[in-house]
């Protein structure tokens, strides 16, 4: 053990003192209502909300990754039309706040009162009122997923660009076609660059799902709000929600650490 400077010890003692003071006040302050927190932590309604939050995270990220990959490939296309379409998409969905997009999708029925699928000048295949098609859940998937795709596209594009051009040339010289070159040669190597920021995006998404509470969709936060609007136990229920976010994000961080280590090898 190297000798530390006395200043280091004084700083440590000072910080510990503050931490202890904060902890003491949090534990002793009855207004935190810790028994209520314990009572609701595993409440079935809260757990259902937690499940919804996880579902939203997974679906939005799957949409984001799938559409984001397509957008990244289009953005890098030699065809100027395709690359412009991708650029406009990314520009639009990164510029409008997710909260606005969510409310917009939720109110899509105000723009088009019904959704109809029809062969031009032919028979109607499908027609329904917009409000029955775009449920709050679907609006949430669309709002979170479509905007996530814009961010993911930029991350994936950076990953693809990081792979030396010689790799594509070598693969093309072997007779591989563009799609196969992406799938077998470029994307596996781009993963090293893509994985760490996508890990961060997943973690952000867990928390961004709470925006969906404005659509009255019972994810974790809105479930907590539903309960405290009935019982007036606002603080303990917000603590319950916060603890669950902390737990999920901690687990994901550990997973991200191992995933990064796996892709850094070689």
């Amino acid at each position: 053990m190297p000798l530390r400077h006395p200043g280091t010890w004084i700083a440590i003692a000072f910080v510990l003192l503050i931490v202890a003071a904060v902890l003491a006040s949090v534990v002793s302050n009855a207004a935190f209502q810790w028994p209520v927190v314990g009572q609701y932590m595993l409440d079935p309604q809260i757990l259902a909300g937690l499940g919804r939050t996880l579902e939203l995270t997974v679906v939005a990220m799957v949409i984001g990754l799938a559409l984001g990959t397509v957008l990244a490939v289009l953005r890098l296309s030699a065809n100027p039309l395709l690359s412009t379409v991708s650029w406009v998409y990314i520009w639009f969905f990164r510029s409008v706040p997710v909260l606005v997009q969510l409310i917009f999708w939720y109110n899509f029925g105000a723009l088009y009162s019904s959704i109809t699928l029809r062969i031009p000048f032919g028979p109607t295949l499908f027609s329904a009122s917009t409000n029955t098609v775009i449920t709050p859940l679907l609006a949430a998937f669309a709002g979170l997923g479509l905007s996530q795709a814009a961010y993911t596209a930029e991350v994936i594009r950076a990953g693809i660009v990081s792979v030396p051009a010689g790799q594509s040339r070598a693969a093309a010289a072997l007779g591989m076609r563009r799609m196969m070159i992406y799938r077998r040669i470029v994307l596996p190597q781009a993963m090293k660059v893509i994985i760490p920021p996508v890990g961060n995006e997943v973690i952000s998404m867990v928390k961004n799902t709470s925006l969906v509470s404005v659509l009255a969709l019972a994810e974790l936060l809105y479930t907590a709000q539903l309960i405290y609007s009935r019982t007036y136990q606002t603080i303990p229920l917000l603590i319950v929600a916060s603890l669950w976010y902390l737990i999920i994000v901690s687990i994901l961080s550990v997973g991200q650490h191992f995933l990064e280590r796996k892709f850094r090898q070689r």
Partner: peptide
């Protein structure tokens, strides 16, 4: 079209200055 160019390339081997082996 790309399909036919790719087929033609199968019959021509190429070795590069920087090797360009697939590192993964």
């Amino acid at each position: 079209p790309e399909r036919e160019v790719a087929r033609m390339r199968q019959g021509i081997g190429m070795v590069f200055q920087q090797f360009n082996l697939f590192p993964h």
